[in-house]
């Protein structure tokens, strides 16, 4: 394993800001794995740290196939991580909305530019990222429909689902989008929550990355073959929104099967405790996303359900 510094920025009174990378094997730029871009993506950084551990062992055993280089960047934003802030500490800019960046641009733009320049040219790119709303997803691999996406490749991770989604204007500033445009097969992986370590989800995520690297002939590793993923698109997902506000008591979690008309949870009055309303499922399917904050406002998206999907 070789450690490298991908970008350095002097701080006024803090230690220099540094983006660190860990390189395994040598030869063709085969795969690059990127973790936290926001300061609260603890789970995402943790997963990458566990991938570093696994790759270290594999390298020591000689199980990184010749002529393959793998780069892991566990965290692009240690400054925000150390102060518990999601976005850049001073001006609150989102690093994962600043790609492709500019070498002579503003601070986050310089960081994103340096990262993208370093991760360009790898055949496969994997990013662990998070959603802006509180909630949990069913583990899945996500690709943006840029015209360069390949669902069949995404299937090789062995996660239960692959989501292909149409990019919105705001998505064009993400690493994933710009990575794909630069010619890398880029995947976003959603595994567990955000600010707390979910050990089971992390293990699944590490396994899915190792499975993919094995199937692409980059490492030698024997693990469970995982799922043959169901490929879903935006239009397969039905959003269930709260029509009231209050305390939320949901009774379904990602992966649960729901029937049409089934009660998915209750909204309680926060002071008197009575049930203000029940949320019923508008479709039969499988829960893809579940809101996990006990307080909900009206219009909150509390579930996304894969429509007409059976177990």
């Amino acid at each position: 394993m070789n450690k490298e510094i991908i970008y350095t920025l002097d701080g006024l009174y803090r230690d220099p800001f540094q983006v660190e990378g860990f390189r395994f094997g040598q030869g063709n730029r085969s795969a690059c794995i990127v973790g936290a871009s926001r300061g609260n993506e603890i789970q995402q950084m943790y997963i990458c740290s566990q991938i570093v551990q696994a790759l270290k062992r594999l390298e020591e055993q000689g199980d990184i196939v010749n002529e393959n280089e793998i780069l892991v960047i566990p965290c692009m934003n240690p400054y925000s991580m150390n102060v518990g802030k999601r976005f850049w500490p001073s001006d609150n800019q989102d690093l994962n909305r600043s790609f492709p960046g500019k070498a002579d641009g503003e601070v986050v733009s310089r960081i994103s530019h340096a990262v993208l320049e370093r991760v360009k040219g790898y055949n496969y790119g994997m990013q662990f990222t998070s959603f802006y709303m509180p909630g949990d997803f069913i583990p899945h691999v996500r690709m943006m429909e840029t015209g360069y996406q390949s669902a069949s490749l995404a299937n090789l991770f062995g996660t239960p689902y692959v989501l292909i989604r149409k990019p919105k204007p705001i998505d064009t500033f993400t690493l994933n989008y710009n990575w794909q445009l630069s010619g890398t097969n880029a995947f976003s992986i959603y595994a567990g929550g955000l600010e707390e370590i979910d050990e089971n989800a992390a293990k699944q995520a590490v396994s899915s990355v190792l499975r993919f690297l094995t199937r692409m002939g980059i490492i030698r590793y024997r693990n469970h073959s995982g799922y043959i993923a169901s490929v879903i698109h935006d239009e397969d997902l039905m959003s269930v929104q709260a029509n009231l506000a209050g305390l939320w008591k949901g009774c379904k979690k990602p992966g649960d099967v729901v029937e049409y008309g089934e009660v998915l949870g209750q909204i309680l009055d926060p002071y008197e405790g009575h049930v203000k309303g029940e949320i019923v499922s508008p479709t039969q399917g499988i829960v893809f996303f579940a809101h996990n904050d006990p307080l909900i406002m009206e219009n909150t998206e509390i579930y996304r359900i894969i429509r007409r999907m059976h177990e």
Binding site: G246, P270, M297
Partner: peptide
């Protein structure tokens, strides 16, 4: 307008 969680409208 939307209703906030604890007895307030926005």
């Amino acid at each position: 307008s939307i209703e906030l969680p604890v007895h307030e409208n926005l």
